[in-house]
């Protein structure tokens, strides 16, 4: 499945629109990562645990969106946008949405 964040797929022609598709996931970090983060809060630097956690979560949200698009019979998603919101302390929602289309 082709995914872009522009309004077209370069080199292909869009023949049918299927409407909005989206995927979301809410993730919380676990205690072990929190302890490491606490240390890093003193020394500064990258929080690798959080980076991985968030990137995995986005991957999951993208997969859910892909699944949805597949069910609608699309083979590409264009104009994809990401958004992050913290739902509660220590948990974040990662949301991705776009337009499902069929390309030649």
């Amino acid at each position: 499945m082709l995914i872009t964040n522009i309004e077209m797929i370069p080199g292909r022609k869009i023949v049918r629109h299927h409407g909005l598709v989206s995927g979301s996931t809410v993730r919380a970090k676990h205690v072990g990562r929190d302890i490491m983060a606490g240390l890093k809060n003193i020394f500064g630097g990258e929080l690798k645990g959080y980076t991985e956690l968030l990137s995995e979560s986005r991957k999951e949200a993208l997969n859910r969106m892909r699944e949805q698009a597949k069910q609608m019979g699309a083979n590409a998603i264009v104009n994809v946008r990401f958004s992050t919101s913290s739902v509660a302390a220590g948990a974040a929602e990662l949301y991705v949405y776009g337009t499902a289309v069929t390309v030649q």
Binding site: I9, G11, N41, L47, Y50, L54
Partner: peptide, 18 residues
């Protein structure tokens, strides 16, 4: 000719020091 189209992404979490 376009041979590949892909959503590229990268993320990082950085903390400030004390």
């Amino acid at each position: 000719k376009v041979v590949k189209v892909k959503l590229a992404s990268g993320n990082v979490v950085i903390s400030v020091d004390y």
